[in-house]
Design a protein around this nucleic acid. Structure first.
Ligand SMILES: [Mn+2]
Ligand SMILES: [Mn+2]
Ligand SMILES: [Zn+2]
Ligand SMILES: [Zn+2]
Lengths: 143, 143
DNA sequence: AACACAAACGCAAGTTACTTGCAATTAATT
DNA sequence: AATTAATTGCAAGTAACTTGCGTTTGTGTT
Protein backbone atom coordinates (compact mmCIF):
# COMPACT_ATOMS: atom_id res chain seq x y z
CA UNK A 1 0.00 0.00 0.00
CA UNK A 2 1.65 3.17 -1.22
CA UNK A 3 0.99 6.69 0.02
CA UNK A 4 -0.34 9.40 -2.28
CA UNK A 5 3.02 11.14 -2.18
CA UNK A 6 4.82 7.97 -3.23
CA UNK A 7 2.45 7.49 -6.13
CA UNK A 8 2.89 11.09 -7.20
CA UNK A 9 6.68 10.79 -7.28
CA UNK A 10 6.40 7.43 -9.01
CA UNK A 11 4.42 8.83 -11.93
CA UNK A 12 6.59 11.95 -12.06
CA UNK A 13 9.63 9.75 -12.62
CA UNK A 14 7.92 7.50 -15.13
CA UNK A 15 6.60 10.43 -17.12
CA UNK A 16 10.17 11.74 -17.34
CA UNK A 17 11.29 8.37 -18.71
CA UNK A 18 13.11 7.35 -15.54
CA UNK A 19 12.88 4.14 -13.55
CA UNK A 20 11.16 4.36 -10.16
CA UNK A 21 14.07 2.87 -8.24
CA UNK A 22 14.76 3.14 -4.50
CA UNK A 23 17.56 5.61 -5.25
CA UNK A 24 15.45 7.92 -7.36
CA UNK A 25 12.44 7.79 -5.06
CA UNK A 26 14.39 8.22 -1.82
CA UNK A 27 16.41 11.16 -3.10
CA UNK A 28 13.52 12.87 -4.83
CA UNK A 29 11.32 12.56 -1.76
CA UNK A 30 14.10 13.94 0.44
CA UNK A 31 14.58 16.96 -1.82
CA UNK A 32 10.85 17.57 -1.98
CA UNK A 33 10.51 17.51 1.81
CA UNK A 34 13.36 20.00 2.25
CA UNK A 35 12.36 23.63 2.57
CA UNK A 36 15.59 24.97 1.14
CA UNK A 37 18.09 23.94 -1.57
CA UNK A 38 20.32 21.07 -0.46
CA UNK A 39 23.61 19.57 -1.61
CA UNK A 40 24.40 15.97 -2.57
CA UNK A 41 26.27 15.67 0.72
CA UNK A 42 23.15 16.80 2.59
CA UNK A 43 21.28 13.97 0.86
CA UNK A 44 23.94 11.38 1.67
CA UNK A 45 23.89 12.37 5.35
CA UNK A 46 20.17 12.98 5.63
CA UNK A 47 18.36 10.04 4.04
CA UNK A 48 17.02 7.18 6.20
CA UNK A 49 17.79 4.27 3.92
CA UNK A 50 21.49 3.88 3.09
CA UNK A 51 22.55 4.73 -0.45
CA UNK A 52 26.12 4.63 -1.72
CA UNK A 53 27.55 8.13 -2.37
CA UNK A 54 28.27 7.14 -5.98
CA UNK A 55 24.60 6.23 -6.40
CA UNK A 56 23.45 9.54 -4.93
CA UNK A 57 25.68 11.56 -7.25
CA UNK A 58 24.51 9.56 -10.25
CA UNK A 59 20.84 9.93 -9.31
CA UNK A 60 21.08 13.66 -8.67
CA UNK A 61 22.67 14.16 -12.08
CA UNK A 62 19.89 12.18 -13.74
CA UNK A 63 17.13 14.02 -11.89
CA UNK A 64 18.67 17.30 -12.99
CA UNK A 65 19.10 16.17 -16.61
CA UNK A 66 15.44 15.22 -16.72
CA UNK A 67 14.29 18.56 -15.33
CA UNK A 68 12.82 17.16 -12.12
CA UNK A 69 15.18 19.11 -9.87
CA UNK A 70 17.15 22.26 -10.62
CA UNK A 71 20.60 23.40 -9.58
CA UNK A 72 21.11 26.46 -7.38
CA UNK A 73 24.50 28.11 -6.84
CA UNK A 74 24.92 29.51 -3.36
CA UNK A 75 28.64 30.38 -3.33
CA UNK A 76 29.25 27.44 -1.07
CA UNK A 77 31.72 24.78 -2.06
CA UNK A 78 29.18 22.60 -3.81
CA UNK A 79 26.04 22.80 -5.92
CA UNK A 80 22.62 22.79 -4.28
CA UNK A 81 19.35 21.52 -5.68
CA UNK A 82 15.65 22.09 -5.21
CA UNK A 83 12.46 20.48 -6.43
CA UNK A 84 11.43 21.91 -9.79
CA UNK A 85 7.69 22.23 -9.48
CA UNK A 86 7.23 25.73 -8.15
CA UNK A 87 7.07 29.06 -9.91
CA UNK A 88 10.27 30.58 -11.19
CA UNK A 89 12.01 32.24 -8.26
CA UNK A 90 15.35 33.22 -6.74
CA UNK A 91 16.99 33.34 -3.32
CA UNK A 92 18.45 35.63 -0.73
CA UNK A 93 21.29 34.15 1.33
CA UNK A 94 22.77 35.41 4.60
CA UNK A 95 26.54 35.72 4.27
CA UNK A 96 26.77 35.32 8.05
CA UNK A 97 24.87 32.10 8.77
CA UNK A 98 23.60 30.75 5.46
CA UNK A 99 19.94 31.41 6.18
CA UNK A 100 18.01 31.35 2.92
CA UNK A 101 14.65 32.66 1.73
CA UNK A 102 12.78 32.56 -1.56
CA UNK A 103 12.37 35.70 -3.66
CA UNK A 104 9.26 35.48 -5.79
CA UNK A 105 9.47 38.53 -8.02
CA UNK A 106 11.58 38.40 -11.12
CA UNK A 107 10.96 40.55 -14.15
CA UNK A 108 14.13 39.49 -15.87
CA UNK A 109 12.35 37.89 -18.81
CA UNK A 110 11.82 41.42 -20.15
CA UNK A 111 15.50 42.16 -19.52
CA UNK A 112 16.38 39.19 -21.73
CA UNK A 113 15.13 41.10 -24.76
CA UNK A 114 17.19 44.17 -23.88
CA UNK A 115 20.28 42.04 -23.54
CA UNK A 116 19.76 40.31 -26.86
CA UNK A 117 19.62 43.78 -28.33
CA UNK A 118 22.95 44.75 -26.78
CA UNK A 119 24.98 41.63 -27.52
CA UNK A 120 26.47 40.79 -30.88
CA UNK A 121 27.53 37.23 -30.10
CA UNK A 122 24.43 35.68 -28.57
CA UNK A 123 21.12 34.72 -30.17
CA UNK A 124 19.07 33.31 -27.31
CA UNK A 125 18.94 33.24 -23.54
CA UNK A 126 17.79 29.96 -22.03
CA UNK A 127 17.81 30.86 -18.34
CA UNK A 128 19.46 32.99 -15.70
CA UNK A 129 20.74 32.63 -12.18
CA UNK A 130 20.12 35.38 -9.66
CA UNK A 131 21.04 35.29 -5.99
CA UNK A 132 21.05 38.08 -3.45
CA UNK A 133 23.51 38.10 -0.57
CA UNK A 134 23.01 40.06 2.63
CA UNK A 135 22.62 39.79 6.37
CA UNK A 136 19.63 38.33 8.19
CA UNK A 137 18.27 40.13 11.24
CA UNK A 138 20.02 37.80 13.67
CA UNK A 139 23.42 38.21 12.03
CA UNK A 140 22.93 41.94 11.58
CA UNK A 141 22.29 42.50 15.28
CA UNK A 142 25.32 40.42 16.26
CA UNK A 143 27.53 43.14 14.87
CA UNK B 1 63.19 49.94 -14.05
CA UNK B 2 59.54 49.03 -13.63
CA UNK B 3 56.78 49.49 -16.18
CA UNK B 4 53.82 51.77 -15.52
CA UNK B 5 51.56 48.75 -15.20
CA UNK B 6 53.85 47.19 -12.59
CA UNK B 7 53.89 50.42 -10.58
CA UNK B 8 50.13 50.66 -10.79
CA UNK B 9 49.61 47.15 -9.44
CA UNK B 10 52.29 47.76 -6.80
CA UNK B 11 50.48 50.75 -5.32
CA UNK B 12 47.10 49.04 -5.66
CA UNK B 13 48.38 46.23 -3.45
CA UNK B 14 50.06 48.56 -0.96
CA UNK B 15 46.95 50.73 -0.65
CA UNK B 16 44.97 47.59 0.17
CA UNK B 17 47.48 46.76 2.92
CA UNK B 18 49.03 43.86 1.04
CA UNK B 19 52.68 43.12 0.35
CA UNK B 20 53.84 43.52 -3.25
CA UNK B 21 55.24 39.99 -3.52
CA UNK B 22 55.99 38.03 -6.68
CA UNK B 23 52.93 35.89 -6.03
CA UNK B 24 50.53 38.79 -5.65
CA UNK B 25 51.96 40.76 -8.57
CA UNK B 26 52.15 37.81 -10.96
CA UNK B 27 48.63 36.63 -10.25
CA UNK B 28 47.08 40.08 -10.24
CA UNK B 29 48.74 40.99 -13.51
CA UNK B 30 47.57 37.74 -15.08
CA UNK B 31 43.98 38.34 -14.00
CA UNK B 32 44.10 41.92 -15.24
CA UNK B 33 45.37 40.88 -18.65
CA UNK B 34 42.64 38.26 -19.05
CA UNK B 35 39.55 39.39 -20.92
CA UNK B 36 37.21 37.01 -19.12
CA UNK B 37 36.86 35.57 -15.61
CA UNK B 38 39.42 32.85 -14.88
CA UNK B 39 39.82 30.09 -12.31
CA UNK B 40 42.73 29.40 -9.96
CA UNK B 41 43.61 26.46 -12.15
CA UNK B 42 43.75 28.78 -15.17
CA UNK B 43 46.25 30.90 -13.24
CA UNK B 44 48.38 27.93 -12.21
CA UNK B 45 48.57 26.74 -15.81
CA UNK B 46 48.84 30.15 -17.42
CA UNK B 47 51.45 32.17 -15.56
CA UNK B 48 55.03 32.42 -16.86
CA UNK B 49 56.90 32.28 -13.57
CA UNK B 50 56.30 29.11 -11.57
CA UNK B 51 54.20 29.44 -8.40
CA UNK B 52 53.19 26.58 -6.18
CA UNK B 53 49.45 25.78 -6.39
CA UNK B 54 49.16 26.30 -2.63
CA UNK B 55 50.58 29.79 -3.08
CA UNK B 56 48.17 30.59 -5.88
CA UNK B 57 45.14 29.53 -3.87
CA UNK B 58 46.33 31.53 -0.88
CA UNK B 59 47.01 34.64 -2.97
CA UNK B 60 43.67 34.49 -4.79
CA UNK B 61 41.86 34.28 -1.45
CA UNK B 62 43.76 37.30 -0.15
CA UNK B 63 43.15 39.35 -3.28
CA UNK B 64 39.46 38.56 -2.99
CA UNK B 65 39.31 39.37 0.73
CA UNK B 66 40.90 42.75 0.04
CA UNK B 67 38.43 43.56 -2.72
CA UNK B 68 41.01 43.67 -5.52
CA UNK B 69 39.41 40.84 -7.47
CA UNK B 70 35.86 39.54 -7.32
CA UNK B 71 34.44 36.07 -7.57
CA UNK B 72 32.15 35.04 -10.42
CA UNK B 73 30.09 31.84 -10.44
CA UNK B 74 29.77 30.31 -13.87
CA UNK B 75 28.24 26.91 -13.02
CA UNK B 76 31.53 25.28 -13.76
CA UNK B 77 33.18 23.14 -11.13
CA UNK B 78 35.22 25.96 -9.67
CA UNK B 79 35.03 29.65 -8.88
CA UNK B 80 36.20 32.24 -11.39
CA UNK B 81 37.62 35.67 -10.73
CA UNK B 82 37.96 38.98 -12.49
CA UNK B 83 39.71 42.27 -11.82
CA UNK B 84 37.57 44.53 -9.68
CA UNK B 85 38.10 47.96 -11.20
CA UNK B 86 35.36 48.20 -13.72
CA UNK B 87 31.75 49.27 -13.39
CA UNK B 88 29.35 46.83 -11.79
CA UNK B 89 28.31 44.33 -14.42
CA UNK B 90 27.20 40.77 -15.13
CA UNK B 91 27.79 38.06 -17.70
CA UNK B 92 26.16 35.98 -20.36
CA UNK B 93 27.59 32.49 -20.83
CA UNK B 94 27.11 30.09 -23.75
CA UNK B 95 25.97 26.70 -22.45
CA UNK B 96 27.43 25.15 -25.59
CA UNK B 97 31.02 26.39 -25.68
CA UNK B 98 31.55 28.61 -22.63
CA UNK B 99 31.88 31.83 -24.59
CA UNK B 100 31.32 34.74 -22.25
CA UNK B 101 30.42 38.42 -22.64
CA UNK B 102 29.90 41.30 -20.25
CA UNK B 103 26.41 42.69 -19.61
CA UNK B 104 26.56 46.32 -18.59
CA UNK B 105 23.02 47.16 -17.60
CA UNK B 106 21.82 46.24 -14.17
CA UNK B 107 19.02 48.06 -12.40
CA UNK B 108 18.90 45.61 -9.55
CA UNK B 109 19.87 48.16 -6.92
CA UNK B 110 16.28 49.39 -7.09
CA UNK B 111 15.06 45.81 -6.81
CA UNK B 112 17.01 45.51 -3.56
CA UNK B 113 14.58 47.90 -1.88
CA UNK B 114 11.55 45.94 -3.12
CA UNK B 115 13.04 42.74 -1.74
CA UNK B 116 13.79 44.24 1.64
CA UNK B 117 10.12 45.22 1.71
CA UNK B 118 9.02 41.63 0.98
CA UNK B 119 11.29 39.73 3.32
CA UNK B 120 10.81 39.43 7.08
CA UNK B 121 14.15 37.85 7.92
CA UNK B 122 16.67 40.07 6.16
CA UNK B 123 17.75 43.64 6.92
CA UNK B 124 20.31 44.43 4.25
CA UNK B 125 21.52 43.24 0.88
CA UNK B 126 25.26 43.48 0.32
CA UNK B 127 25.50 42.27 -3.27
CA UNK B 128 23.95 40.00 -5.86
CA UNK B 129 25.08 37.56 -8.45
CA UNK B 130 23.40 37.49 -11.84
CA UNK B 131 24.38 35.36 -14.79
CA UNK B 132 22.53 34.71 -18.03
CA UNK B 133 22.90 31.43 -19.88
CA UNK B 134 22.14 30.96 -23.53
CA UNK B 135 23.57 30.01 -26.89
CA UNK B 136 26.07 32.05 -28.87
CA UNK B 137 25.60 32.46 -32.62
CA UNK B 138 28.14 29.79 -33.45
CA UNK B 139 26.60 27.20 -31.14
CA UNK B 140 23.09 28.14 -32.18
CA UNK B 141 23.80 27.51 -35.86
CA UNK B 142 25.44 24.16 -35.11
CA UNK B 143 22.04 22.82 -34.15
C1' DA C 1 4.30 -15.96 -14.19
C1' DA C 2 8.61 -16.34 -16.48
C1' DC C 3 12.07 -14.00 -19.57
C1' DA C 4 15.15 -10.50 -21.42
C1' DC C 5 17.65 -6.51 -21.12
C1' DA C 6 18.99 -2.02 -20.18
C1' DA C 7 19.35 0.69 -16.30
C1' DA C 8 20.70 1.12 -11.62
C1' DC C 9 23.40 -0.33 -7.79
C1' DG C 10 27.34 -1.15 -4.35
C1' DC C 11 31.98 -1.42 -3.78
C1' DA C 12 36.68 -0.13 -4.60
C1' DA C 13 39.84 2.65 -6.75
C1' DG C 14 40.99 6.90 -8.89
C1' DT C 15 40.81 12.02 -9.73
C1' DT C 16 40.44 16.89 -9.11
C1' DA C 17 40.42 20.85 -6.56
C1' DC C 18 41.72 22.64 -2.85
C1' DT C 19 43.74 23.02 2.34
C1' DT C 20 46.99 22.73 6.12
C1' DG C 21 51.41 22.37 8.79
C1' DC C 22 55.93 23.74 8.90
C1' DA C 23 60.49 25.42 8.11
C1' DA C 24 62.87 28.68 5.08
C1' DT C 25 62.68 33.02 2.76
C1' DT C 26 61.58 37.75 1.99
C1' DA C 27 59.13 42.48 1.91
C1' DA C 28 58.46 46.26 4.58
C1' DT C 29 59.32 48.96 8.71
C1' DT C 30 62.66 50.77 11.95
C1' DA D 1 71.62 46.75 8.83
C1' DA D 2 68.41 44.63 12.10
C1' DT D 3 63.63 43.09 13.09
C1' DT D 4 59.48 40.91 12.26
C1' DA D 5 55.37 39.41 10.35
C1' DA D 6 53.77 37.86 5.93
C1' DT D 7 54.70 34.92 2.16
C1' DT D 8 56.41 30.87 -0.03
C1' DG D 9 57.50 25.94 -1.43
C1' DC D 10 57.11 21.44 -0.29
C1' DA D 11 54.78 17.50 1.48
C1' DA D 12 50.92 15.57 3.32
C1' DG D 13 46.07 15.57 3.95
C1' DT D 14 41.05 16.34 2.90
C1' DA D 15 36.52 16.86 0.58
C1' DA D 16 33.86 16.22 -3.21
C1' DC D 17 33.10 13.97 -6.60
C1' DT D 18 33.94 10.18 -10.77
C1' DT D 19 34.76 5.79 -13.02
C1' DG D 20 35.09 0.75 -13.83
C1' DC D 21 33.01 -3.43 -13.09
C1' DG D 22 30.41 -7.33 -11.69
C1' DT D 23 25.79 -8.01 -9.64
C1' DT D 24 21.04 -6.87 -8.97
C1' DT D 25 16.60 -5.01 -10.25
C1' DG D 26 12.69 -2.51 -12.63
C1' DT D 27 10.04 -2.78 -16.61
C1' DG D 28 8.32 -4.16 -21.06
C1' DT D 29 7.39 -8.45 -23.50
C1' DT D 30 6.12 -12.99 -24.00
MN1 LIG E 1 13.76 28.14 -3.56
MN1 LIG F 1 33.20 40.68 -16.65
ZN1 LIG G 1 22.34 35.15 9.17
ZN1 LIG H 1 28.81 28.93 -27.82
Amino acid sequence: MKSDQENQLYSLLRKAGMKATPGHLTILSFIQKSKKPISSQDIINGIDRHLDPATVYRCVTKLKENGIIRQIDLRQNNAHYEFFDMAHHHHIICTGCGRIEDIEDCNLETVHQQILGQTKGFTQIKHHSLEFYGLCKKCNSKN
